[in-house]
Design a protein around this nucleic acid. Sequence first.
DNA 1: GCATAAATACCGGGTTCCCGGTATTGATTC
DNA 2: GAATCAATACCGGGAACCCGGTATTTATGC
Lengths: 223, 223
Amino acid sequence: MSTQEDIQEKKKRISVWIVDDNKSFCVVLSEALNRSNSITCDRYFHSSRQAIEFLETNNHPPQVILLDIKMPGTKGVDAIESIKRIAPSTNIIMLTSYDFDTDIRTSLKRGASGYLLKSSQPMDIIRAIQTVQKGGTPLDPMITQRMTDAFIAENPESDAYNLSAREREVIRWISQGMNSAEVAQQLSITYNTVETHIKNIFHKLNVSNRHAMVAKAIKERLI
Amino acid sequence: MSTQEDIQEKKKRISVWIVDDNKSFCVVLSEALNRSNSITCDRYFHSSRQAIEFLETNNHPPQVILLDIKMPGTKGVDAIESIKRIAPSTNIIMLTSYDFDTDIRTSLKRGASGYLLKSSQPMDIIRAIQTVQKGGTPLDPMITQRMTDAFIAENPESDAYNLSAREREVIRWISQGMNSAEVAQQLSITYNTVETHIKNIFHKLNVSNRHAMVAKAIKERLI
DNA sequence: GCATAAATACCGGGTTCCCGGTATTGATTC
DNA sequence: GAATCAATACCGGGAACCCGGTATTTATGC
């Protein structure tokens, strides 16, 4: 294989880190991942602390982190927010040996992109990494079912901000690219009212400008 | 059941429309959906045109539309963009009897949120509707696999706009709520450079302000 | 070596946004 | 009927954004 092809190959591969206290699990999984031609497992860590420290001093975060939920020291669930703060664009897939509803929910709430059982086949994990890079939410079917049942009854996070229908409507048009004047015309209300709605949304979502509002609304599916 | 409970019950249910030329399929599926306690199938249409017309004159779009991909007249794939234009927040799940890669890709590109085989059990469809409302992407496992294989080799849509790594980085920080000055500090470049990057992104994404940029970048998974 | 593209940097001026207020109406709730 | 909330509306000023330029350096490609 020539150097050029080699570089091209590397570019295509999805970069992945593993964070798991079980050393042999890390070795086995990283080898399996590297055998696939779409993923490179750059490195693995045996504690959240080590991974976060490396992330902070290094300016090349991976595209995906596989994060064990149950570890000595900082728990996986607690590491999510730190990781997301340092590397907002890195997708996190949680790995777990057991399945407590609360942990699943907490993880997804804090920014994890997926949730898999450690008993999954390497092929399933590879597929999950690919899925998450394309924007999907890889969840073990067992977990999906459990989540669906548990989540659907109560109100999801989406309702936590108490946005009114009108406010959501304003966000929708704003996210289409309209400015306040255009939204006003669209909704047949005055410019001032639109501005008031936006100010109220800012408070409810705890943001201070439109782009953050749009980002939060889309990411948290408020609109 | 009292009236209050009745109203509360209705509020919780996910509103769904079915668009499928097969009349008995519509009847059977809508009955199955209504039997669940989480979904209300408000109405069904036997052509995309009818559904779109109703959507235009009515200001209560459903939360989810199940859309057959193969219909006489306007094809399901072509209806997606019209539906998304009228009701941007409505999630669309495509139904299909067959599975061509191109159709799957086109549908997702145009804004569909999921893709199911019509041979799926009603229970699977119910779960898919719930999934899509929580932000997931329900895809039939058969389809997922096919997609993953086909998509991963070539560059995904995300590359169509030719955003540079630096530009994506700028969008990421902007979408966190930072202003240009803060992004400049974050990236150790000047305010002017950030503004230049943003201007260039505007051109590439064909938008004219930050909130549209953020919305597009997130929706099309550019960041 | 020359074209192309990415990343960097600067300027000026018009527009829009952001934020602090205040206030009225109508519907719901207690 | 008082309180609360959503939706409506207005004002003013300072900050940030948008857009039209121009320009240099470095890296990549042919």
